[in-house]
Design a protein around this nucleic acid. Sequence first.
DNA 1: GTGAAAGCGCTAACAG
DNA 2: CTGTTAGCGCTTTCAC
Lengths: 348, 348
Amino acid sequence: MSLATIKEIAKLANVSIATVSNVLNQKPGSASPEKVEKVLKVAKSLNYRPNYLAQSLKRQRSRSIGIIAEDLTVSQTAEIINGIEEYCEEYDYEALLANMRLFKRYGNNLSAIPERSVLFNRAFDNLVSKQVEGCIYIGYHGREVSFSPPDTGLPFVYTYCVPKDKSYPYVLSDDENASLEIGRALISMGHRRIGIISGPVNSFNSQKRLVGIQQALFEASIPYNVGTTVIGDWTRECGYHAASQLLSQGVTAIYAFSDKMISGVYTYCIEHRISVGKDISLFGFDDSDIVHAYTPPLASAKPDLQEMGHKAAELVLAQLQGKTVCTKCHVLPCTIHVRPSVCSIGEA
Amino acid sequence: MSLATIKEIAKLANVSIATVSNVLNQKPGSASPEKVEKVLKVAKSLNYRPNYLAQSLKRQRSRSIGIIAEDLTVSQTAEIINGIEEYCEEYDYEALLANMRLFKRYGNNLSAIPERSVLFNRAFDNLVSKQVEGCIYIGYHGREVSFSPPDTGLPFVYTYCVPKDKSYPYVLSDDENASLEIGRALISMGHRRIGIISGPVNSFNSQKRLVGIQQALFEASIPYNVGTTVIGDWTRECGYHAASQLLSQGVTAIYAFSDKMISGVYTYCIEHRISVGKDISLFGFDDSDIVHAYTPPLASAKPDLQEMGHKAAELVLAQLQGKTVCTKCHVLPCTIHVRPSVCSIGEA
DNA sequence: GTGAAAGCGCTAACAG
DNA sequence: CTGTTAGCGCTTTCAC
């Protein structure tokens, strides 16, 4: 019933617990072949599994890093965690997850909820308590995150968000460049009046994406027209409303900073018999599941979430090896998927 | 730098470690008010956090349950985990996650990959090693799962899958009843020729959903026509192909066992100028993000994943309290969302 | 009230 | 090669 210990193995195998430990840890030449065999046999028959708690306590080493996720159910989080775990596995580390469930508790409206910092501290304490050797924070919507770890010299890395306290490294997708490429693609296809549906201004993602598209316009000597930029809130609904506003201004293409918002535009177009990929070109961001649900499929930019996880883990493990890492923003390229929802301006 | 211990607190507060421990654990009347205050002050100043490893080792109690997820990035998994965590939090337990990354490694083709059991054993050992008091297995696509925990009397509960070994409880959504309701809804709207796009036959979900719709037909004395059932593989592509086959047979409604498959049908309809919600009624399953992306929005059935997580956790914790739980299938209702993608047969 | 001491399961000197 | 021993940080009798 209760778990076997090395003590029991030692008794049954007629050896000392030290020998059992040595054998189990494969210390070279520390036991005769017969004893090795005996110990291994007894261990297997007892279905022995080392007690991680005791092991780590004794070794003073957990070989684990913590993940503080703002919300596990927000679409990007799982992919990032997956990336972290992949990287950790390679280096024989493991990841411990603390999920704050922020979105489940408060939705998108995270501002001015003091309770949040309680949740953060609880999550952090929990992880430290478990002796993690480092920690990765996963935000959402690229918000600015105001909490940072109290004192400890624990390696701490942020991802998918921007820490207020710039003394920690953070990992983001290169939204600016992605946006630049999107702009170039649209412009190269002849579009000059491009409507933009931005995310909220407090989102770092929004900021960067805006700068990128502006840069593309600038390169092509097309003046940026604030009048054809609508500020949205990431929802389908706002995309829908923005569509009518933008289309009435005669834009030939609409670039929304999320697939969800562009999906509202899509709905508007259908309702008004505007043919996507013919009468109007549409570009989204995130490359979420819904892009393939449309006819024609939606063009979008895909952040490499897995790679962001890798990078974040790399930054933590590097610090654990004593390397100093740059406490700056580490930026990873997106992939631009141009799909039939965009077309050249003469083609229609 | 390194973490403070009760020993250090004891020294600084001029008390014994036993007193520190008593104070920190709020043992009533075990220390004078002055000492309590002193200890608390020192603890705070040292930023003390109890060592979970040592604590649990000593207490012989981890107050944690393990989660073995087949793949964290499969859409339903995170929601279920969220539910488990919510339930655990109420009872002062916590969840430890072991992610096998099965989908990331092998995609949908999980059959005949012997390595899988290695991954399962590794995950299970890892969790047991950490002294979890129980375990929840989260599958995907309602497959039959052939691995079960080796020996240990550890409470073990499956969810979103069906264990081959029926001596463990498992939690599923009530797909049969959901399907029955979908069938009734369609029939009540006048549909008699209903095309079905099933998932793979080895999916328990497929089986149940098929039985449900058959039951609805039976109730209405409509003979079930195998010729208008296509077996798909959960993908959009197969939905697309099934659509042409089904529509040529003159069905007035198509019910696909996943939103993804129905989304292929949607594409087919657009390409062939068949008006969804007028010329044809469409019903999906899962109620995923994409249902709102369509115009008109897609009708679908929503499994209560969060509640499934709650239930699974409940079944584990109940066993920990010595209660015996039913080692049967525990089934949770879905919500049926009828949306404008379906219409009455005369309405068109 | 308070502290000394034992011990949770394990690893790592160290002696033999 | 093998076993004895100390001790990781903590909780918990049990004397005082």
